[in-house]
Amino acid sequence: MHELNICVNLIRILEDKIYNALPPITRIKTVWLEIGQLAGIDLDAIRFSFPIAAAHSLAKDATLEIKTQAGSAHCHNCDKNVTIASLLTPCAICGQYNYTITLGKALRVTKMETE
């Protein structure tokens, strides 16, 4: 549900960036996002919401390229970094949940292609 709101924020960021650009930008062709597996974001919902949020902006026909960031955590039992696919994934070594997430919460726009 919050993905639409996130896309609205995204469009606002893009519009801020191209505001007053010289030469003037007439459209946004591609937008690259990086979204972590543990960010609590549904990628399908983002893809669904983006065109709605972009409808009245220069990004209305833009292609969305989403790079996912894998989840990773430091296990305090094993003192090792392990891959965590979701918040329900136990440490692959000890099977416990005694870890601190180190990566996978990204929710970032990295670049855009304009003309």
Partner: peptide, 11 residues
Amino acid sequence: SRIMQIEQDIL
């Protein structure tokens, strides 16, 4: 066509 680097948190 121009590529613009942004690197910004959406939230």
